[in-house]
Amino acid sequence: MHHTPPKIAIGSFTVAFLTDGLWRNDGGCMFGVVPRELWKREHPPDEQNRIRLNLTCPLIIKGRDAVLVDTGIGNRLGAVEGKIFDHGEGWLLDHLRALGMEAGDVTHLIVSHLHFDHCGGIVRRRESGVLESSFPNARIFVQKGELAIAKNPRNERLRAAYKAAGEIVAIAERQFEAIDGDTEIVPGVMAVRTGGHTADHQIAAVQDGADSFVHLADIVPTRSHMRGPWNQAYDLDALRSMEEKARYLEQASGSKCWLSFAHDDSIFAARVRKEHGRFEITDRVPVSYAAEA
């Protein structure tokens, strides 16, 4: 059932596109002020207004270093939330196994931000119901401000957004390393703070010679969000998201850099070029899990 994740080479790095599976979320939340009539063409909503999304978790490999970016939802959801978001057990560990690896082989984890659909897989629920750390040997890197908010959300909106994070951080606490701004995780791999979606949202960037790759996480969650004003209702600072998005898309269109998105259900990664003022996809790494949905 689980295909081997597709891979691209970035210089001497391999980037494998793992996914924690497909899920559904409210289309209005994903597209904010964009009218439904516009987004529904490429993202048809179900009768509950939910659209199908992916949980993309790139794995950056070189030698013994295995740097996972985000972890999807995992299997910690109860029955009610599982139904709301239409997500099963999660596929991340299956896809790791398809590469001949196991959870203990992941050496570093870059978490873009601590919303449940990015950090949920940091823990696993055992059959007994006990939660444990999924990647026991990994150093987990998150921005200092993000960690602080997760531990102590200051208002109702943040409390709702980070309600899973407190529990998750507590279980894997000894593995977390708070970083402050742009930080090299291993040589050639950076965590870069963008803000926008959350105050301390970060992305992962790989550079080796002329080759580069950036996982934009929730700055550009789907291919449709490449359009400047298409932002999520969840973005705390949509203007910042727009600025960061434009900067990375411009850079990529000039340099053949590969970009990947957190939640697109049909493509993992793309190269882009600017045509008549808008960004068009030139090359793509397609998602081949559609049949399993």
Rank of each mutant, 00 (worst) to 15 (best):
L68F: 11
H87K: 07
E81D: 14
L55A: 15
I84P: 03
L53D: 00
T56V: 14
I60T: 07
R52A: 05
V67D: 01
V67F: 13
R76T: 12
K62C: 02
P58E: 10
E89F: 10
F85T: 09
Q48F: 09
N49S: 10
A79N: 09
G74W: 06
K62D: 07
N49F: 14
A79L: 11
L68G: 03
D65I: 12
E81P: 00
L77F: 13
P58V: 04
G72Q: 00
N75K: 11
G72A: 03
I84Q: 14
F85W: 15
G74A: 03
R52D: 01
L55T: 08
Q48E: 12
I61N: 04
R76H: 11
V80Q: 11
F85I: 12
G88W: 14
K62Q: 14
E89S: 12
E89C: 06
R50T: 00
H87V: 15
D70V: 06
H87E: 08
E47S: 14
G82W: 13
H87S: 05
P58D: 08
V80G: 03
E81N: 07
I51H: 01
D70Q: 10
I60H: 03
K62S: 04
H87P: 03
A66Q: 12
C57H: 03
P58L: 06
K83Q: 07
G82T: 13
L59A: 01
R64G: 01
L59F: 07
D70E: 11
E47Y: 09
I60W: 02
R52P: 00
L53C: 04
N75P: 02
A79K: 06
C57N: 12
T56G: 00
V67E: 05
G63H: 02
D65M: 08
N54W: 09
G63P: 01
E89A: 12
K62Y: 05
R50C: 07
I61K: 04
K62E: 09
D70I: 05
G88L: 13
D65E: 13
I60D: 04
